[in-house]
Amino acid sequence: MKLNKKQALFPPLVFNVFKPARITSYDVVRHFKRHLPQGFGKIGHFGTLDPFASGVLMIGICGAARLNDFIHDFLPKTYLAVGKLGIETPTGDYTSEIVQRDESLYLTREIASFSREFIEEKLREKFIGDYWQAPHKYSASKFMGRNMHEWAREGIEVKKEPVLRKVYKIEVVKYAFPYLSIRVEVSSGTYVRTLFTDMCNYLGTLGSLISLVRESVGPVTYKTALKMKDWPQDKTLPIISRGMKIEDVLPFTKLKLDEKQTLIFKNGGFLRPADLNVLQDSSLSQNYFWMLDESEKLLGLGEKTFPTELKPKINFHSEVEVPSSSDHDPQ
């Protein structure tokens, strides 16, 4: 079978990849794009990790990347941040020079004597819940079509209005002055560099990160992530078996459609949720549902527009062509 470059041969899949520090997120996507077997369709990642950071980077193929906004809206992210108190850098991390030092006695006598438990209590009191945060000037946030870090490196100061984020959990893992290790669970779009700086400011000093690890995105964790040695190398199919189903990454309620309902969904028609069989229930959302046919093959994502109506939001059936066994030969 001859395929065009963007034709999908496999179901929507997500690779849980461990991105090392000192390479970009796009470097990882580029590697997968070059070494995946033919038929991976369109490819993209779910949320940039800064070059200095490491950890979970999810890569979607065969239409999975169309769920990018849903990943951001529904799945919190957990980070382990290690920083140093008493210093400030323009980028908020070790990749730039120190521009200010706190040489106060309050830092060396008071803050240095704080207990881990005291710091954790104070930070939870202040930061758990709603958190208004302006994007860091050295970030990938867009302004007039360009990344903010591009403006900053040209010496142009760009200020964006604070955006509401959520901080769900804070754990002070270790405190050995002047080093502070914090694990946070936050909503998507939260800049942990900025959050760490804000935390240090609240404690009464400066602070900058020396390492950052994204430990999880929703149910996807670094413990099962593909290390670099496991990344695809020769366009063979075994790597496909390491992909996660998009419906397992985003655990919406699964609905099973009969033959007639499947045809209606494929053609963009409306269905009644009450008429559909629930395969697996979920509390993640009351408005979005995975739609599966009688053989439990994923058809797409349904959206409830009214209490008694459900329509296709994303339809995968037109993107995926199921090949014969001979079509699976390595290219």
Rank of each mutant, 00 (worst) to 15 (best):
T91A: 09
G86P: 04
F316E: 11
Q233M: 12
Q100P: 02
G83F: 02
K42I: 12
T190W: 02
G269N: 10
F306V: 04
V99E: 11
K159F: 12
V29W: 01
R22N: 15
K166S: 14
S326D: 15
K137Q: 12
N315H: 13
F74M: 00
T262I: 08
Q38G: 06
K304W: 00
Q280W: 00
E294V: 07
I59P: 03
I239E: 08
Q280P: 00
K142F: 03
N201Y: 11
D281T: 13
D198A: 11
L206W: 05
Y179R: 11
S54Y: 02
V17F: 02
G63V: 07
K245W: 07
L212P: 03
Y94L: 13
F46T: 05
Y138L: 02
I264F: 02
R109S: 14
F270W: 05
K229W: 05
S216M: 01
K2S: 14
T91G: 05
F270D: 12
K126R: 13
A112T: 09
D102E: 05
L75W: 08
H35V: 06
I128E: 08
R153W: 02
V29T: 07
S96D: 13
S54G: 08
F265R: 04
F177I: 01
K256A: 11
L250S: 04
T108S: 15
R34S: 14
K5G: 01
S325F: 12
R153Q: 09
S104V: 09
G47E: 06
T108K: 12
F196A: 07
Q280A: 14
V249K: 02
L206V: 07
E247Y: 12
M228W: 08
V278W: 03
K223Q: 14
V249S: 04
A8W: 01
P12F: 09
G83E: 00
L49Y: 04
K159Y: 12
V278D: 09
R242T: 13
